[in-house]
Each structure stands twice: as structure tokens, then as C-alpha cells.
Amino acid sequence: MEILRYAAFTDRPDGGNPAGVVLDADDLTATQMQAIAADLGYAESAFVSARSPGGAAIRYFAPEAEIPFCGHATIATGVALAEREGPATLVLATPVGPLELSTGRVADRLVASLVTVEPWVDAIDPAVRTQLLHHLRLREEDLDGDLPLMLSFAGNIHPIVPVRDTATLTALDYDFDGLRELMAAEGWGATVAVVHRLSPRVFEARNPFPPGGVREDPATGSAAASLGAYLRARAELAPPATITVYQGAQVGRPSVITVDVPPSGGLTVSGGAVRIDG
């Protein structure tokens, strides 16, 4: 068994979001996968099994828990497979349902794209909203008055928290333990997407990740997809459209995530990945 290390949504090893990738995990138990993910300490690691010419099964583990879906580890897996076997399109069996993962070359660089499951967007309970802002240490005046705080799902449930300016986003300093307790109570197993709209189709984001035992996720593909679903549901863009999300600068690992938003159905998340260890 080989444990690969990739940085996703970047073109350099010290950028993006690191992920562990195991391409031959058939003989690993869940306990062993969890131990490997904890030892790596990355936001998530991906474990691939039951490989066939047209597909595979995949599971995702953060340092402290298994999660249903992870965008950046899927992108890393796609690039890792393409480097060894050539670009292809696969159907991945995931805990949230089947996902299409394709890889190809763009300007001499391997890029992977995944199509999410059917998304949904919903309002958040007012009392939960109050608690969330409290633990994020945000005030009402810190929020973007044109974009409401809502829940969005494209594989994981992410609260979408739009803030008014870059300064507010940069200053984000949240209560880790309090937010972790709230997210556990609400069944939110991934990140909170705190975002700022730079232009209609360009956003910057920070993603606290207490459920995984990680202070902040440098690049969150599922949150970027959930943001795209949120914008489509609110008619903030006219599909088909593409949004770009910049994330990770505040933790020293800048990343770029591209999301293609069709008129309906799953969204396509794309990005590159590079080996961390050469």
C-alpha cells in the first residue's frame, strides 16, 4: 500500500489543500483508514477500493471522523489516477451517491472535474443562526445585506455566511469548541463557508472545519459547489455560469476553485493537483 500526498486546487506543492490518497485501500478497515488520516493530519484523505475500468468506490476521512464527501480529495484522486493511467472518466461510488470524475490536460497540466449530486438550498432556523454568528464572533453589521445566511448542500451541508468586505473575512477568529458543538448538534459534518463577493462571479472564502479537527480548510470543493447552488437558487447568476472561489490565503496555502453552474442538476467542480513529496 502506498500513501500518496497531493495538494489540490493549486499548481504548487505548498499551495492548495493537502490530501492523502490511497489508491489500493481494498484491504483496509475503517479503523485503519481513520488512523492513516489522523497520522497524516490533512483536512481529508481519500481511500479508493473496488477499482474497475469504469469506476471505483471511495471513502473520505478527516483526522477525527469519516465524512460523506470531500471535493479536494476527489480532485487529488483524479489527478493521481490520471498520472498513472492516463486521463479518463470514472463513476465513483461515494457515501452520498455516484459521482462522475473526469480528468484531462489543460495547457500541459492535468485538471480533474467532478459532478456533484443533486444540490438543495434551505433557510436556517433563526435560533441556530444566532448561535452560529455568536460562535463565529460575527455581528449582524458584519454580514452582506444583499446575501442571506442559508444552508446549502452539494454533497455536504454547508452554512453559507456572506460577509460585507474582505477586512471582515480576514479578521475572522471563531470559537472552535463552541462551533464544533453547534455543528455536531445540527448534523453539519463539514465546514462553514464564510464568503465575500468580490464580483458577481468571483468570491473569496474561509472555511472553519471543527468537525474534522481542523482549524481551517485551505480549499473546500464541496463548499464551493454549495455556494454555486446557493447563487443559482437565489437567481444571483444566470446559468450556465462559472464562478471562481479563492481560498486559503489566510493560512498560507492559496487555492483557486472553479465551479460550473448549469441550469439544473449537479454542479461541476474543477481544479488541478500536484504531488507534495515529488
Rank of each mutant, 00 (worst) to 15 (best):
G155P: 04
L90I: 10
P148K: 10
R164P: 03
V115R: 14
V128E: 12
D125W: 05
L149A: 02
G145L: 10
L151W: 09
P95I: 11
P159T: 04
V91W: 05
R129D: 09
L151G: 09
A123Y: 07
V117M: 04
D165I: 03
L133K: 06
E141W: 13
L90F: 11
L169G: 01
Y174T: 03
W120M: 10
S199Q: 15
D165H: 08
A190G: 02
A112E: 01
D125M: 04
I157V: 15
A154C: 05
G187P: 03
L149V: 15
A154F: 05
V194A: 07
L143V: 08
G178D: 09
R139E: 14
D165N: 11
G178T: 07
A171Y: 00
D175E: 12
S199M: 13
P98S: 09
P162T: 04
S102T: 13
D175S: 06
V202N: 13
V128D: 13
V161I: 13
A171M: 07
L132K: 02
V161P: 00
R180D: 15
P95S: 13
A184C: 12
P200W: 11
E181A: 14
A112I: 05
L138D: 04
A123Q: 13
L143Y: 06
L133Q: 12
L101E: 01
